[in-house]
Write a protein that binds this DNA or RNA. Structure first.
Length: 154
DNA sequence: GCCAACGTTGGC
DNA sequence: GCCAACGTTGGC
């Protein structure tokens, strides 16, 4: 059982979009960074992840999701019509992978990036480290619990 | 829109 | 294998 954080730009795909999918489940495709891909490959069914809205007015964690399918090839990578097309990825030798996630629940109040930065005890959280741009990153159990506790009291 | 940080590409 | 050039991310 591990914990993660996954970023999405809400104008592209928001937590609300996920909640409106059948069974609140959708695939998480389009990751084209090796480190982020490797983290996705390390995910197991039942792992939980924060859903983070990036590149928007108030960036922050807006909800949580559960991993419901482990990493499998991302077929958008060999679709020439996909914005995520990568000519070096083929069905025989897939380079990129995706997982399926299911929304658990939206947070009643988003936990903003500024809140996370101001909160004591979150040192080392990759999200708030300078220059961190990964779209998928691990969260320690201690950090996960701290952030969950923030949600309750906010 | 700016720009710092970072990743990738490709010439050599 | 080095590294300059370029592209992308994402907060502000």
């Amino acid at each position: 059982m591990a914990y993660w954080l996954m970023k999405s730009e809400p104008t592209t795909y928001s937590f609300d979009d996920l909640c409106h999918q059948p069974k609140k489940t959708d695939f998480w495709d389009g990751v084209r960074n090796y480190q982020a891909r490797n983290f996705m490959k390390a995910m197991s069914i039942g792992d939980e992840a924060f859903f983070y809205h990036s590149n928007c007015k108030e960036p922050g964690i807006v909800g949580s999701v559960k991993i419901v399918k482990a990493a499998y090839p991302d077929d958008t990578s060999w679709d020439p019509d996909s914005p995520y097309f990568d000519p070096k990825s083929t069905p025989e030798n897939p380079r990129w992978f995706r997982v399926d996630v299911q929304a658990i629940a939206p947070f009643t109040h988003p936990i903003l990036l500024s809140d996370l930065k101001a909160h004591p005890g979150l040192d080392g959280l990759p999200l708030i480290q300078k220059g961190s741009r990964l779209s998928v990153m691990p969260v320690s159990e201690a950090h996960w619990k701290s952030i969950m506790a923030m949600q309750v009291t906010s």
